[in-house]
Design a protein around this nucleic acid. Structure first.
Lengths: 123, 123
DNA sequence: GACATATGTCCATTATTCTAGAAATATGGA
DNA sequence: TCCATATTTCTAGAATAATGGACATATGTC
């Protein structure tokens, strides 16, 4: 993920309605949820929500597919992983957070040194 | 980190100048860098940069301390770790990213399953 | 104290984003 | 075809954010 993409994703997440939508979609997993259900659950007018869903879709945060009369939205988990990777690699220091590939599992392993503050280099 | 705090941090990171400032500060580590150096490095007028640094400071993303005539800004690495933790816990699914404490090292370990997509539950 | 340096504050302008009413589009069913 | 449902698009006003010139403040040096 480059810096321009990251800005777009941060922007999409920096608004209450949108962040709530996203977290709700995360709860719905890969199955997703229809726009109307989100509108109702979050108590946001359908046209306002549509504006935000469109915003999120442009940012790549969500995908949508029609199913009958409904349009089902799903969270983009891949993007979320990329974003986490960006924060670790580009917005943190190796002293505080590091990322590496685990060959065996094929997973990326991130270590957050939240309990072991680095010794300050005395200048 | 709660959702309100997350929105504030995302907002602070969702603007090009601010994200560039933050990444530059990350490179400067715990030592930080003076406002003027940032202004010069990023080619942003000092007053405009001051506006953004103030924005970032309010969000808790950076800290500042005076040193002679300069004001030294430093990235808040703790907040960055909290943000990464928030994304993993609240904005991702356990199938895609999980976080656990490693008793021995005292670190939080995050596993990003970026190479092992979960088997879809056939409905 | 006079001056240069480093940074912040004030202000007006411009640009962008959010909101929700009204109308439009798409789908499915009687 | 007619109607209800689900959602989006259009639109305009309101709110918020970004920009940079001019000025103010704080610090260090001579």
């Amino acid at each position: 993920m480059d810096i321009q993409k990251a800005i777009i994703v941060f922007d999409a997440l920096s608004q209450e309605t949108r962040l709530r939508v996203f977290r709700l979609l995360v709860e719905h997993g890969t199955q997703g949820a229809p726009a109307g259900k989100l509108s109702e659950a979050l108590d946001v007018p359908h046209n306002t929500l549509s504006f935000h869903l469109n915003h999120m879709s442009n940012a790549g945060l969500v995908a949508s597919k029609r199913e009958g009369r409904s349009i089902i939205y799903t969270a983009n988990f891949d993007l979320m992983r990329d974003l986490i990777g960006f924060l670790v690699k580009d917005c943190c220091s190796v002293e505080f957070a590091s990322i590496r590939k685990d060959k065996k599992s094929g997973c990326s392993i991130i270590e957050l040194a939240d309990c072991c503050p680095p010794k300050e280099k005395k200048a």
